[in-house]
Design a protein around this nucleic acid. Structure first.
Lengths: 148, 148
DNA sequence: TTTAAAACATGATAAAAGTCATAAATAAAG
DNA sequence: CTTTATTTATGACTTTTATCATGTTTTAAA
């Protein structure tokens, strides 16, 4: 479904949201270690996100990645769109050219509701909301991202 | 989610189930044309399925692929298992190492029910049942596969 | 001026997807 | 029978894409 890059990116961004802010940035190597992601690969991915203003970075000593208030308002869908593009959500689960309510594939009626719910969540929940949900679910003490 | 090979295979097998039987076999090129699948690639995939007794084939003039009664009792999950393996159904949607009800990723509660329903259908419905469902949904005149 | 960190460019590796050539089998025609 | 045409079977090969690695450059703070 999602590419490795997208998965890495999503997990990394949620991590950044929970563990850093403008005063306390976090390096890509640290993130890679914590999340068991190949460091160079993650670095590259985070650069793409930075270029598209989905996350923020500062170079130099004590530099690193963090999320600005605008960044925190982005969604996981923005991340996926940036890295994988959007097409994979538009295709049939079994690869049929036509697959809709009139000409459904055999799993269409299972897949469509899931996809819709998924897309709704990915598109409407902000990164900070998602990060909070993750922190709550996993009993993390997420830092307050609102201090700048 | 599924590889191209698996998608091709599933669609091809359902096609074979609907359009051929032991007396009226169907060639891989024909299937490839009808389903807009690269012919050599599909041929290769169908051979894998033949080797694992998921479909049947006869060489020579008027040869081709068909489904024996035993073949028709297989499931789409058997096809996927044969081609992609089974691991992709066991991993977190976002690639987290641990993802369960206690430590869920942010889409776990959306993904799990879908996956369970999907697996149930893929594992319990036979190929012939799936083919009939497809034919019914798409208003096809599927041939009766029970004449041998 | 030193140093730590991102940014950038490029290359390596691996896996997936697709192609091609040839062999083997078999039914039907002569 | 023998030949021929048709069709699957097999393996080598190419292309593309995804993933991972390395080295160099730039930037900013101490």
């Amino acid at each position: 479904m999602l590419s490795q890059s997208s998965k890495y990116a999503i997990r990394a961004v949620l991590y950044i949201s929970n563990y850093s802010n403008k005063k306390k940035k976090i390096g890509s190597k640290k993130i890679a270690n914590e999340l068991h992601i190949p460091a160079p690969f993650l670095a590259k991915t985070l650069q793409e996100l930075t270029r598209k203003n989905i996350i923020s970075s500062v170079k130099g000593p004590h530099g690193g990645f963090f999320l600005s208030p605008e960044n925190n308002k982005k969604t996981l869908f923005d991340i996926i769109k940036c890295i994988d593009g959007v097409q994979k959500f538009e295709t049939c689960f079994l690869g049929q050219e036509e697959c809709n309510d009139d000409q459904p594939c055999v799993v269409h009626h299972l897949y469509l509701p899931f996809k819709n719910k998924l897309l709704k969540k990915l598109k409407t929940k902000t990164i900070v909301e998602m990060a909070n949900e993750y922190a709550k679910n996993n009993n993390l003490l997420n830092i307050i991202n609102l201090e700048y």
